[in-house]
Amino acid sequence: MTRYVLSRIGQSLLVLLLAYTVVFWGVSILPSDPATIFVAKGEGYFNPEVVEQVKQFYGYDKPLLAQYFGQLVQLASGNFGFSLSSGQAVTDRIADVVGETLKLAGTATVFAIVISVGIVLLATTSRFERLRKAVRNIPPLFSSVPTFWLGLVILQIFSVQLGLFSLFPDGSVASFVIPALVLAVPISAPIAQVLLKNAEATMRLPHVATARAKGGTPGWVIRKHVLKNAAGPALTVTATTVGALLGGSVVTETVFSRAGLGSVLMDAVATQDISLIQGLVLLTTVAIVAINLAVDLIYPILDPRVTRTQSKGFSTRLGRFQ
């Protein structure tokens, strides 16, 4: 077990190094540079001498290879550098907003799981066939509703027209729950889809027939014998939605004027803020790697048939991020 965890951590470090390398060279080959953008900030012109001065302050005057290794050493010692576009240390900039994004994304994930389980329960246990059929169509519908459209329609009707809640976060429950629900909609779609498919497949298995034969009610059978067995793949899908959450949060944050990592990342890219982009990418990579590692470790507990040796590497799932 220890050896398995250690090798997974080693793989994770390799992924981080690759992410750093790709970001560093990707941003460096862009035609402009962060020091110029910093000096020209808000102005239509800049003084080239001042740009040189700023490059010296932050080491952007050194050869690229020296910068690459220099920053790598700094990163290893926990120094993420200075974000020129925001005038703050990268760690401060990220710390400013990461809580908001975690709250939003975490709540959205919980909502998404509740919605998914709700859909599955309705679709498998309802007495009305029409309702069961209708509910089955919800996941494809949810995955095709654009988040920004949904957010704007809700804002337009309930905030601007009816004045039921604020257009921007004002500390009220509604101004937090509604963006989380909007973000949960596209996240819940793949989870519900997979959970439903698996639940239906599981229901055809002999042990479910046995459970029914014992006289179990549909709800009891689902809860005790189906959901747990069907949860494995859904868990994997939930883990892969981390990327989608970050992407979705860009839109949700923009529409609901919220602070968060998504909008910070967008600004960082627009201003070629190398240090900030690196900090954000590394943070996201760590989050994705950690969640996938956690899922791999939980999997055998959920489904004893899956032994660690059979467990799939995270790289196969990595390709599924949207």
Binding site: S32, D33, I37, G44, F46, A270, T271, Q272
Partner: peptide
């Protein structure tokens, strides 16, 4: 924004829309 940030410092970009002090 990205295009603007590049264009501010790039003499080969023919036009830059702005108003400035």
């Amino acid at each position: 924004t990205t295009a603007y940030n590049i264009a501010v410092a790039d003499p080969s970009k023919p036009l830059l829309g702005t108003r400035t002090y």
